[in-house]
Design a protein around this nucleic acid. Structure first.
Lengths: 228, 228, 228, 228
DNA sequence: CATGAATGAGCATTCATTCAT
DNA sequence: TATGAATGAATGCTCATTCAT
């Protein structure tokens, strides 16, 4: 597993070059979705982009770099989506509201370009390109940690940093698996519900205990009061 | 992305060929760990195994079949480990004990050959080869579902099947991420602790609410009752 | 085009060996018809014959030898057919009858195993194996020459040997082409008619002139005598 | 025996690539003559042409396509030769003259590159590649048919189309055999004489009857009229 | 800067052939 | 003799990459 260059060769300064690079990245995404990672080749991408191979190599050192660029673009857009969403969200009264909003944003971001997202998650881990996505989730960890600290009075965890890691990792895995194997759960909104339960139960079990007893989060209705 | 044959070509009957096949599978695992999935080629594996390409093709129709065989072996060993472990475990008094044991088994299984496991999970494209691993996780889901149903009195979930999916997926993701990025958590046992909290909080929030108040599962010690 | 060994390695003396060899030759013919010359391989023939490759190599040095053996067998059978036919034929009164009988025998021989014959003629010329078939036609030349000499009084050719060559070569080419491209002509019997015309016109044009005028051999009926 | 692509991949536009393609086709012909069809491989041709395999594959999808290109070139040249010859021929007074000219053209065309011609006819399997040659002979059949119809008054055949097939097939076989086994006949001109006799006797037996009696076409001189 | 022809290392795969059992 | 596992040279073919135009 030799280290692979994924950085672009040079940044296009002129406008024409910018257009070329965009065409190449878009073409890469298209080929990725249509033919998969294995069938992707520099020549094919060049043809798809309507550009000569030589031009492609002027900006990208190889196949990996192409995919990395797509990944970068995709991650950026997801990030933008999320930021946008959280900015526009109504002021959250409770921690539960905040969590809900974050989870929704995360799911929505993945649904934006689902086919591309799926290919990237499924086929691209082989090269280091997922790092970018992990960074994104790293950002998440910071957000979550902040959220935990802000609500520290009600939160029943000791190590906020670790808790953030646990939550983000678990949710990331869950979302990816669901995207691949249980799209029905995603579509129906039940996944969102369950993630919320998972997260809140982890950070404020007593709250969920109550809520679950009330029938929220898909918990069973019970007679007596929970806990004890 | 055409369908790919992953089934072995013929089963070796003689002793000599049995050895050949073993050598090939072992070499495949080695190459996979050392060079990664993309760099794996039939010729390279044959050379690594000290066997001619022809012999390799006598038993495996191609690269995918090689990886599938490794996957099969790895999954079988994991399964054996888990079965062994659960057989030898002391009789579990509480559901908590059962969960603890299952999580420990899962972690232990993944730690057995962590580098190979990582490659298999990270790099093997979602072809038929991964099916075996999915089966394994599918088995897990069934185990978990059974556990949930057995303890249905104390369990506060409605849809056991979905809950099992959620739990296995979340834990899988968490374990994988931790294996890669936070081996310290794995080694220190804190990961196990947190997984337990995550799982139990999800299925019996009321219990965790209490336990967390008591300082177990890394929850903060508090005076009064939680929630509000 | 290196010289290729086509001779069998050793003659089977024992009965068991004889059976093995037969099985191999028959399997070769079958594979030849079913899969064609290019797809024929020693391993495949061995499997088809229910014999191990090793055994095959005990009797045949390679692919070419297999095909040569099939060719030999096929040619022998054709020869036998022809001999049989001519022996049983009613005593021929006229040269025309003899020619007719020879041509019929030749055509009949080719129709015996048409699919094998076709493969041999179409695909096998590449190796020297057609030599055997040419020998067969060489025999024909001798037969034809003899026939010409026997009927020298009525025959209007000077060089019987050359005439025999011309006739056999022309008829061979015609029959082969017709077998491949115009099987309808073969089936309808018109080919036979035309070959007869071609042959007789060449050797006794005056006879055919008359016959043609009478409407035989597919000639046009005319009033007055032809030519001038 | 699956369908095989024999069409070239792309037409070279630049001058450089035109040269490459030419080099490849010429090398193919050379290898064909030197080593035979079975020993011809893309790599060998590339080496012979002093070109990389990659370049070869840029223009030809495989072995068959290479041979098809050679075949095409050869057939074209033959056709040109024939056309040229017939254009320059003195106006033919009699059908006999026309036939003579056609046979001479055919013989001459085959003698142009006899070794290549032999390989093509003998060894190239009856794939699409031979189609081109069939076309050529098909053209011949049309020419002959036209000739027969033009001279229908003197011609003693009913079905001109079938007669054309018979003649071309017979003459083709005869010429091929003679080229291989009796070059002396070709060189001395006796073959031409005999083909003429064969053809004319078939189509106008009465004429040949007379001519043969006069000693033309290698017929024996006789006193009285032949036949009876 | 753009082009695309040319390169050739490298991979998948087959198959004639040998030889220990 | 028979077996069939093992061999490895040879083939078809792709594709990342370069470079003259």
């Amino acid at each position: 597993m030799a280290r692979i260059r994924t950085a672009p060769r040079k940044s296009p300064t002129q406008q024409r070059s910018r257009a070329t690079v965009d065409a190449i990245v878009d073409a890469t995404a298209r080929v990725l979705v249509r033919d998969g990672y294995d069938a992707l080749s520099t020549n094919r991408v060049a043809k798809e982009a309507g550009v000569s191979v030589g031009s492609l190599y002027q900006y990208f050192p190889g196949k990996e770099a192409l995919v990395a660029a797509v990944m970068e673009q995709h991650a950026s857009r997801m990030q933008e989506n999320i930021a946008e969403r959280m900015k526009n969200a109504p002021p959250a009264a409770t921690p539960e509201d905040v969590a809900t909003e974050m989870i929704r944003a995360m799911l929505a971001a993945q649904q934006a370009e689902p086919r591309l997202h799926r290919v990237l998650v499924e086929q691209v881990p082989r090269i280091g390109a997922l790092r970018r996505l992990h960074e994104l989730f790293g950002n998440y960890e910071l957000l979550v940690e902040a959220w935990l600290l802000e609500n520290s009075e009600r939160i029943e965890v000791q190590d906020a940093r670790m808790a953030a890691f646990v939550l983000v990792a678990a949710v990331e895995g869950l979302v990816n698996r669901a995207t691949l194997d249980r799209p029905d759960l995603v579509a129906s909104g039940r996944l969102e519900e369950q993630i919320l339960r998972l997260v809140l139960a982890y950070v404020v079990p007593s709250h969920v205990a109550q809520a679950s007893a009330d029938g929220r989060y898909g918990g069973r209705k019970r007679k007596g009061p929970a806990g004890g």
